[in-house]
Design a protein around this nucleic acid. Sequence first.
DNA 1: CAGTATTGAATCATGTGTTC
DNA 2: GAACACATGATTCAATACTG
Length: 550
Amino acid sequence: MDKLNDTLQKKNLGAFYTHKLYAEKSLELVRAAIARVPTGNDYIILDRCAGTGNLEAGLTDEELSHCVVSTVEYYEYKVLQELLGAKVRHIIPPIEMTDTFNAGLVSGADALSKEYIENPVIKQYIANPQCTIILFENPPYAETTSAEHQRQRQSKKSSTWKQSYVVTEMKKEVKGTASNDLGNVFIWSGFKYYLRQPTDSYIVYSPVKYWKAQHLIDRKFVKGFAYNRRHFHTNIDACIMCAYWQNIADSRKEIEIAAYDIDDNTGTLVSCGLLPVKQVFTTYSKIYYDKRPIPDEQRTGILAGLNGLEKVGGKQRNKPATAPDIMGYMVAHSSGFDNPDLDSSLLIAARYDGNGFFLRKDNYLEKLPMFCASRYITYNRAWTERARIMKSADGADRYNADVASGKLAQFLLKCLLFTCTEMQNHMRTFTGSDGRFYRDELCLDGTNGKTIALRDIKGLIPGDREKAILNQWETVLQWAKKAENYSPSLTYGVYQIYAELDTSHVDETTGNTIWDNVELHTALAGLKTLVKDYYNSEIVPVLFEYEFIK
DNA sequence: CAGTATTGAATCATGTGTTC
DNA sequence: GAACACATGATTCAATACTG
């Protein structure tokens, strides 16, 4: 059905199909689970979201005769019925009745309904101690409160599944955001309602966050694979784990999964080595944010938007603050990297919707690794990284000790250099509506006197990479000063130069974009390349070492 | 080949309201 | 008044796909 529906419909129902090669690969895990079935036992392989039966396609007839499958989408049900109906042990519902078709869905096949949980066909196996249960599923992942849904104002409309019986039950036991995701509901309910014996198994496709960050389950990891989400008919590279969980309690904090990409030309799996998945336990905001209270009399000033300028109008959720030692506002929230540019920002004043803290002159340097870490996914876009690597404050004790001892002094200055030359630093210099002059202190423009960054960066012992970046910055600044809009009274960072000085217009005859300052544009592009290389070689390894990313 | 257009599966911290 | 529960709500960028 993924070809039949529009994008949002697809997202609502989570219809993304499993590539044949991935489905076949995961049969290794299913067969390992079958091998564990005690002698003399019957077993069933249950798939509550079978779609058109992709996962089951590679099973032998004998294995298929143990399968119990269902799908909630009517046209998929028709296909499933035709392809596997005669071979599987049960398809739910077994035959089509007059009321089976229900507004495009299949009556009685909604795995999240009470009716389904109590389905007698499945229940007979659950109740039978001589039967082993193996769940084998690629559940839908629908995060209907996601940024994209919100942009299209569809969050409410797309969230009807949240009214379901299973979600209601899950919320009684699982607190927090884990229940926001439809995929998590499947995983939770799988363990809750279907697995009962130590030899029962769950082989499930999902991004790792349910185990890594949300700690939704505490079962024994037997084996797993990492697959590229792109081959699930999506447009993004990200990591999907297919894991074999055994129904035995376990407290491992780190697992390894074997990664496989697909070469579309040859139609073969390409091994990409072993990837570690480490659990995360603490967020930056809990540990690293500067929580020093702000007196009421300092709660004046302006709020800033994501573009670094003053935000006027709209919903203002945050309170501004102004004080001699406040130099900006940093946001580095959430553990995942799904919306890196929303989840991290560096602004001259409080972000209008909060989720951050005020950067202060006395300790801003030790806060910068949070900003640096928040840029990881932008410069490491391989499919193995997104949805596997996350942010954490788990290394805080070691980090704080090494900051205190001075061991990390050079590293912090490297972070400073990166922060001052990276585009996502949206601090800008301007006069606010409150009449105050806001000056960007985290940039390397000394035209109007040294910024705090310039003062501190003197301590950096520059290697070749640092020298190259500093030189390139000088070139950028030189050309920026020749731009028409350049204002000598302002102190410019890279982003402000990009936004205000690196202007362009469209040639009326050719329709081409003409950069008003080609040299400036070229110099900026050169700087970006240098900064990216610098980040990955000098900063990322230390961020991993101290578990800012893991 | 260069320039242009399009794209992003898969939240969570926060404030506020509610309950005890 | 503490603890809990839940509704709320927001791009930017680089990479890639496409076009001529």
